[in-house]
Amino acid sequence: MTRTASSRFWLAIGFLVVLGFSLGPVLIMLSTAFDGRANDGSRGLLPTEWSLENFAFVLDEGGFVTYLRNSLVVALATVVISSALALLASVAVSRFRFRFRTSVLIMVLVVQMVPLEALVIPLFIQAKTLGMLNHLFGLVVVYVAFSLPFAIWTLRGFVSAIPRELEEAAYVDGASWPRMFWSILFPLVAPGLVATSVFSFITAWNEFVFAITFLNDQDSYTVAAGLRQFFTQYGTDWGAVMAGSTLITLPVMIFFVIVQKRLSDGLVAGAVKG
């Protein structure tokens, strides 16, 4: 009995510690964002003066309405394109045997080890050559490239997990390959797509180096790039920085909490079946 009680006690302690470590920084962010006097130097766990002023400023003068829209466009486009490309590629590598298959797989694996800052300069020059600078689409293409390798690896596991018999049954029923793909493979890989979508979404949403390098035009900034403007030569507007950060973090949090269950289902499913 004492054993159970003490272990419950330690579990509770652990629970609180992890909760505190996870949410502590988030609370500081929120309290400053809601603090009308965020810039006068006093800082604590609760705002000294509750106010939505910072949010109003960030959304209005800070231009975050535009930035949020840009980020959403970029993130969603990245998710859609990279999911589509990764799905097709993962079917190719897990369902077919062909020359250079192993080379393709190794390339996909190696490519994700490349430090992305190393690519800033050449990608910048390349984007310039292609006239993609300052275009949100240029950024989308880059983010697709960054999220593809993991998406391919993840989906490859899901595709391999689908029993071949289902496929063959479809052929027996007279279905063509595209039909079989659409009605058999696609629905079964859907949970995997949820997982990869989350990751592509976050790549695109949080990325900061390429956003400030590629975009020179304030109208096309994404949120991560837009945050920089509150650090000015004339002082740092901490209230605005934290309100902006909250606006950046919030959609990702909501997205996460919604997909959390599906995500861990997806992860576990991938684990068991893979």
């Binding site: 910048f124 020059i125 984007a127 310039k128 600078l133 300052n134 390098t213 020179n216 035009d217």
Partner: peptide, 8 residues
């Protein structure tokens, strides 16, 4: 620098 390099 980026805009000069990028022609923008």
């Amino acid at each position: 620098v980026k805009s000069i390099a990028g022609g923008t």
